[in-house]
Amino acid sequence: MSDIATRYLGLTLKSPLVASASPLCESVPNIRELEDAGMGAVVLPSLFEEQLELESNALDDDLWRGAESYPESQSLLPDLEDYNLGPDGYLDLIEGAKAAVDIPVIASLNGVSPGGWAEYARLMEEAGADAIELNIYSISTEPSVGAAEVEKGYVDFVRQIKRTTRIPVAVKLSPFFSAPANIALRLDDAGADGLVLFNRFYQPDFDVESLEVVPRLTLSHPDELLLRLHWTAILSDHVEADLAVTGGVHSAVDVVKAIMAGASVTMVASVLLQKGIHHACSILSDLRRWLEEHEYDSVRQMCGSMSRRSVPDPSAFERGNYMRVLSSHALKPSS
């Protein structure tokens, strides 16, 4: 029987399938179910520093609303002794998950301030997280801030967190860099133990009837995998950090492709949200069958076997390939 164990961020995982940060991992019973289904690790949903601040400010605003006009409104809602406005709920989830499962529990953090990143990372480590995934999701809407400044911020954050925590740190990247390989390398140098390719962003949609901008959540599609394969194949030859592929992984063949490109693990959420946690069992049994049918001893054996350096014609990953794909779609002459 083929061995599907892998190593990621210095941790030993019983399978290369990891639950990515999503609502699936919001509760301990679900996390236990994910372990039972054979997942190698779980990434908890992101703790958003900005959200904690907004919630705190919003509650304060709402409790005091109207007080400037109507003094009575100060006391309309009773004073409660304590509000759980900090990360306590999140830290409880880490502790609960650690007590319930044996697989690694990876906390996910989205910070906005240098102090915030470091403080929350420290608290996550104390709560027992096996590793931290930094979700560097920020939207640079300020035109006067250049790419170099934004990228430097990311690298500095990673360096700072590596200084303040002892557990491994992965960085979840966006595909929208002018030079993705360069930023990957710099994060690698800053000490990132893993790079997660790539974050999926949720752009708002337009409702043209109500003329409103509305939030829209779309689950991933297997087509999205191609971008991840491409950059995994390029980066795996250049960085020390482990690579994880997330976004568009829906089947055992997708897992195989990602590992061949050079990923240590593949992360899934959408397909489990659609088909249920138990679907992970099918993916893993398909993976085992595929490995046996193709006579692979282990997933480690094929890791990076189709990276840019490992394929006979690296131009497939370069611009020339773009031209070839376009020309293959030329209209056929009408008969």
Binding site: D62, E81, N84
Partner: peptide, 13 residues
């Protein structure tokens, strides 16, 4: 959307 509900969610989740 209302503090009369969310204040409980944040004091005793």
């Amino acid at each position: 959307q209302e503090a009369r509900y969310t204040m409980l969610a944040q004091s005793d989740p």
